[in-house]
């Protein structure tokens, strides 16, 4: 088990370096020179040359990569052209919002997956319905789900807010949900949850249904296996057979599907934030793209990339936990 963790962490670090290299290469192939953009058209040649030297832009490709990594370790991602603030400060403001949204979506998605997998699976009913639901939700663009939800629950029923994280526009950053829970304020928590509900569900539907379908199929397969027959013959109740014996064995394919859905969740979160005006990395990124604010774009990509790489490592380790047979192997 320890070896599996170490191997997986080593691989994660390799991937993080590759990610930084890819992002760096993208940055270097930008058609426009960020220094020129930063200082504007009227800047003197000397000033630009001096700044370029300061930033190391006159050095070789790899030595620049070294500088890039060095700056990364010091938390320096440059300055946003739009907000004129260090990109890192912007990211720190917006990352919690995205993490709260993506985390809630992951939670809702897993819950949904469990409901789909366990409902009717025991009586082998509802396969066709699950299939239709799966196709519908894996085909619906995230923004269509978002738009539909806004029109229905905000515009028509007035049940839920249309967007944002709180009622006031000034408190939109940081750990809104977690802070309100920590402060023990039920009204603020309820408000945060009401704001989270639509975007989180819109984001969770597709991955939740996809994982649920895989888990259901895998559960039905496992229930046919001989060790389950052994348990039935041993007089165990159907409930404990499913929950204690079958489910864990059925998890493996569902966990790999979860890993797959992770990438889609992280790109989906960007779109959902735009639809719901959610002040997170996605909204920040959307504005940055429209204004060609490349330091900001690169910063967001890097952060989302790191989140993805770390969470896929966690998913992989979960597989090792779920199946003891994987532990001996590297």
């Amino acid at each position: 088990m320890r070896r599996a963790v170490v191997t997986r962490l080593a691989w994660m670090i390799v991937v993080l370096f590759v990610l930084s290299f890819v992002v760096f290469s993208i940055q270097r192939t930008l058609p426009s020179d960020p220094v020129r953009i930063f200082f504007g058209r009227n800047a003197s040649k000397e000033l630009i040359a001096q700044k370029q030297h300061e930033l190391g832009y006159d050095r070789s490709f790899f030595s620049q990569y070294g500088l890039f990594v060095n700056r990364l370790f010091h938390g320096d991602l440059g300055t946003s052209l739009r907000t004129r603030r260090p990109v890192v400060s912007d990211l720190m403001d917006f990352l919690p919002g995205t993490l709260e949204l993506a985390g809630s979506a992951a939670f809702v998605g897993l819950l949904l997956a469990l409901v789909i997998a366990l409902t009717g699976a025991l009586r082998r009913k509802g396969g066709a319905i699950v299939r239709v639901i799966a196709i519908v939700f894996s085909s619906a663009p995230t923004f269509l789900l978002g738009l539909g939800a806004v029109l229905l629950f905000y515009r028509h029923f007035h049940w839920l807010p249309a967007g944002g994280r709180t009622k006031s526009a000034t408190e939109g950053n940081g750990w809104v949900l977690l802070r309100s829970i920590a402060k023990g304020s039920p009204s603020k928590t309820w408000e945060a949850i009401r704001h989270l509900a639509m975007p989180a569900v819109a984001l969770a539907l597709a991955p939740g249904v996809a994982i649920g379908r895989i888990l259901r199929g895998s559960l039905l397969d496992v229930l046919e296996q001989e060790h389950i027959r052994t348990m039935r013959a041993g007089g165990l109740t159907e409930r404990s057979i499913v929950l204690r014996h079958a489910l864990r064995n059925a998890l493996l394919p569902a966990i790999s599907m979860g890993g797959l859905q992770l990438g889609l969740l992280l790109s989906g979160v960007v779109v959902v934030e735009v639809v719901f005006a959610w002040p997170g990395l996605g909204l920040y990124l959307n504005q940055a793209i429209r204004l060609a604010d490349f330091p900001a774009v690169i910063g967001v990509v890097l952060v989302l990339g790191v989140v993805f790489v770390i969470s896929s490592a966690v998913v992989d380790l979960l597989q090792t936990v779920a199946d003891p047979r994987l532990r001996g192997r590297a």
């Binding site: 001989e226 060790h227 064995n249 779920a322």
Partner: peptide
């Protein structure tokens, strides 16, 4: 099947 008769987890 002794391979399949025991819950592998």
């Amino acid at each position: 099947d002794p391979l399949g008769a025991l819950n592998p987890t």
